[in-house]
């Protein structure tokens, strides 16, 4: 799960506050959190900023750094590679389930998966993918 998706998840569980108000409270430049939540590239390079955000949400800096490595474009690259190679791809979902199968399509919001060993075709939401095989490999 990307840092942006994790931050949105944390914000939702903190009452879904207004981004500008949170930025002001934390002491971040306007637009910092919005950019982190919505961009597809790797974001959150400034550990000092990230530490402030972690403290605000009661999360650990290490956890946010872990999500920083799982940025949306990295997932796109993995999906594309899996689709072209037709190899089985594995995903850990927010529900705790691991899902493995052949990726048949992907777009900016979701991807289609033919589960390994049969079962119904499944549309997985990208924002629900916590981790996938081969991150950082």
């Amino acid at each position: 799960m990307s840092l942006g998706d994790e931050l949105r998840y944390l914000r939702a569980f903190h009452g879904g506050g207004n981004l500008m108000e949170i930025e002001d409270e934390i002491g971040l430049d306007p637009g910092t959190l919005r950019m982190m939540e919505q961009r597809y590239c790797r974001v959150g390079e400034d550990d000092e900023e990230l530490a402030k955000i972690a403290a605000y949400y009661g999360a650990s800096l290490e956890k946010l750094q872990w999500h920083r490595e799982r940025y949306r474009k990295a997932l796109s690259a993995y999906l594309q590679e899996a689709m072209e190679s037709e190899d089985a791809a594995g995903f850990e979902l927010r529900t705790g389930e691991w899902m493995k199968g052949r990726v048949t399509w992907w777009d900016l919001g979701a991807f289609g998966l033919e589960p390994e060993g049969g079962g119904p075709f499944t549309v997985v939401q990208r924002h629900a993918v916590v981790d996938w095989e081969g991150v950082g490999a």
Partner: peptide, 15 residues
């Protein structure tokens, strides 16, 4: 809400 969905598939195990 899309944001609340993890995945969806055809019901009843239909591929």
């Amino acid at each position: 809400n899309k944001l609340a969905i993890v995945y969806y598939r055809k019901a009843g195990g239909e591929a």
